[in-house]
Structure formats: C-alpha cells, structure tokens
Design a protein around this nucleic acid. Structure first.
Length: 396
DNA sequence: TCTGGGGTCCTAGGACCC
DNA sequence: TCTGGGGTCCTAGGACCC
C-alpha cells in the first residue's frame, strides 16, 4: 500500500491489499495494526520516483502514437484513428507488451468510441484476467456491459450524483445512457448530459493533446506535528511559496494574486477548530518568490491566532498570465534584476537539488516538515539512492 | 496521538454597464 | 397602476477527477 503525504491516508492498494477489505482513503492509523499483522508492505508516497516512471511511460506513448493526452500521472488517452487495417485489440496487446518491455510497467488498456466508454472498457480490462489487460468495448454488446456497471463507477459520476440518481431509479450506466435529455440537463447540468451522450457513443470530450497551462498553482501541506509558533508557520509558508513559484516560472507565467490559508486539525474533537483564508491582490503580476513571500507573510500574521495548534498551511497562486503578456506599470520600472535572480536560483536548484539555495525566510532545519517514515528510495532520480547490485559467482 | 494534495468545470446570484 | 433588454465579470459553492 502507498500512503498519502504525511503518511496520512491509504491512497493505493495492490490486489492482495484490496482483498483485506481496506477502503481507499482510510486513515493509516486506523488500520496500521491489521496491516502489520498481515505483513502488508506500506510505503510513504514518493513522487520523484512515480513522476519519473510516469514520464518514461508517457514519452514512449508519444513516440508510438501521434495523438496522446496525458490525463494524470498514471493515465493517458490515445487517439487510434490511424489503425484501420487491424484489430484494435491486437494493437492494444502489442502496445501493452512494448510498454512492459521498455519500462517494466504493466498497464491495462480500454478501447472505445468515446473517452467515457474507453474508461469503462479499461476498468473491465483491469479487473478481468481473461482479457489479458486489453478490452475493446465495441467487440461486445455495449448495452449488456453498461447494464452491469453501477452508475457510480462511470467517469464523472461521483458519490453525490450517484446518490441522487439512485433516488430517481438510475442505478446502472445503461439507465444513465437511456435517461431523458431534458431531465439530465436539468438535474445533472451540462456535464451530466455530456456523460450520458458519451455512453451513447457520441464524443463530447475531445482529446487535448496540447493542454493549456495551468489556471492556478497550489502548494499546501500538513505539518509533521501541530505547529503553534508564527515563526514556524512563516518558514513553512515561505517554503510552499518557493515551491509554487518554481512551477509558475516553469510555465513562464506571472501571478496576479495569491491566497494563503491556515488551518487547525479539522478532525480534532477536543481542540478549537479554526481555518482562515486570505486573498492578496498584488500591485503587479510577478513570478518572484521574494515578492510573493514579502506579501504573504504579513497576511499570515493577520490570520494567525496565538494559542492554537495548526495542522496545515498553504498557498495558491492564481490570476495567472503568460510572462509575455506582462502589463508594464506606468509608475514603476520593471524589476529586471529580480527575474535574473530567480532564473539563476532555478538553474542552481535544478542542477544541485531543491532547496540548495532558498530564502532565509524558508528556514533551514524545517522541523515541521511532514512525516515520510516509510519512503522508498528515489531509485531513478537520485545518485545517492540508485539500487546497488551485488553479484557473486561460485569459485570453480 | 495519528485523517493528503492539487486540480477542473459549472451554476446562481450580485454588481455593473449601455 | 404601470418600471426593458441584453450583456459582462466576479465570487462562492458544489460537484467531480486522480
């Protein structure tokens, strides 16, 4: 099993772990004993490793297929329009073997005329061993299949909508597919109607092979312990701002505003609950960590209530504009030195590792950092953590 | 004691404009 | 007594996804 940040919740399970009946999102502390007794291996999340493996798989896909939409760290949509002369299932099997051979990663592949149907097919491909990881939904009776899929499993139908649909007698994907358009539009809004159309094989969600840049960038994290002092909160917030700003500069954008947030443990039954948010509109858009930190810290002091034990702080950058759209301020010259400094900082940290150079405000020891007690090594991205192979042979 | 993080889209309602 | 029509932009809140 893999844990979320701060070793908080369970966010990934092997089939064997699923068989123990532990639900996705269960807080780790609630089942730690059971897991230990059953000999389950538990890992802290390791995004350096997952991100690198994901990149390997995605870049291979891009090399093999012209139209690829990377949907998440472990999912992608491919447009298979170019394959007319052979069975898509065969093509899928071959693709799967290639990925396995080149990256070592097993995948399942679902094929369908729309994204939503492909997701249904993918789900079956993963669950059903006889399909050997590949399923083309058009080779079967789609209605029979949809009749067996619970509506809550359809992509785009979450817990809330599923509950509402159940009350109206819509229990399966087939029921949703056959729903009345006017009713769907009114009760599930346009996104729900689109989902139903997609189940009918009418594509409403195109392939986005060159996604636009992000509209907001956030960095927020729980602390390793309950933090009480403003000084530590300042360090944490400055650290998160530096992380968010690196991404901001990475997409060559500037932020118009930022929102900072601060919260105590919302689950605590004894401590005072508090959560504060504050939006700061910047005098002019910036990508400078220094400027962002300078605006954020006084706002954090405003949100701070002495005597509380804080669990989490965060920053969100929004109102993002491309660097090239920078609107010059009539009354103050643009700070060119600042952007050169940031470029140098990114270059150094890119080469020598995150936090090689940082603002003093971000602290040094960072004792409040989250827990990752069971982290696997960054096998593929850190020289210090490369796997070591020991070979021995019998002396003849 | 211990409960993640980072995104997207849609809608309704209010403010404002001509 | 009787008070238009057509827009935009912003925000908060709700839903979803991985």
């Amino acid at each position: 099993m893999v844990l979320s940040n701060n070793d908080g919740c369970i966010i990934a399970r092997s089939n064997e772990a699923k068989a123990l009946g532990i639900a996705m999102g269960t807080p780790y502390f609630k089942c730690a004993k059971l897991l230990a007794a059953q000999g389950v291996k538990v890992f802290s999340s390791n995004y350096a490793l997952y991100g690198d493996i994901s990149n390997r798989v995605m870049s291979l896909l891009r090399r093999l297929e012209p139209e690829v939409e990377v949907y998440s760290i472990d999912e992608a949509f491919l447009h298979l329009s170019g394959i007319a002369d052979r069975s898509l299932t065969d093509y899928g099997r071959e693709l799967r073997q290639t990925l396995r051979r080149c990256t070592g990663i097993p995948v399942s592949i679902g094929i369908g005329p729309t994204k939503t149907l492909a997701k249904v097919a993918g789900h079956l491909a993963k669950k059903n061993e006889s399909l050997q990881g590949v399923f083309d939904i058009t080779t079967a009776d789609v209605d029979v299949i949809l009749g067996r899929v619970a509506v809550a499993e359809v992509w785009g139908i979450g817990r809330r909508l599923a509950q509402r649909l159940a009350l109206c007698g819509i229990a399966t994907a087939l029921d949703l597919k056959n729903g009345d358009d006017g009713w769907l539009r009114k009760n599930l809004n346009i996104t729900g109607l689109r989902t139903a159309m997609e189940l009918r094989g009418i594509s409403c969600l195109g392939l986005e092979n060159c996604p636009l840049s992000r509209k907001s960038i956030a960095s927020s994290k729980s602390f390793g312990y309950q933090v009480e002092s403003l000084a530590e909160l300042n360090e944490a917030l400055a650290t998160y701002i530096e992380q968010a700003a690196v991404q901001l500069r990475g997409q060559h954008a500037l932020a118009n505003s930022l929102e900072i947030s601060l919260a105590t443990n919302r689950f605590s039954k004894t401590a005072v609950h508090y959560s504060g948010r504050k939006v700061i509109t910047l005098p002019e858009p910036t990508a400078s960590s220094t400027v962002l930190i300078r605006h954020a810290l006084p706002a954090l002091a405003d949100l701070y209530r002495p005597g509380l034990r804080y669990q989490k702080a965060g920053v969100m950058l929004f109102g993002l504009v491309p660097e090239s759209f920078y609107q010059f301020n009539l009354f103050s010259p643009r700070d060119r030195k600042g952007s050169a400094l940031m470029a140098a900082l990114d270059q150094i940290n890119g080469k020598w590792g995150r936090c090689t150079i940082q603002h003093g405000a971000a602290g040094f020891d960072k004792p409040w950092k989250n827990r990752q007690l069971q982290k696997s090594p960054a096998y593929t991205t850190s020289w210090q953590e490369l796997p070591v192979v020991k070979a021995s042979w019998p002396v003849l």
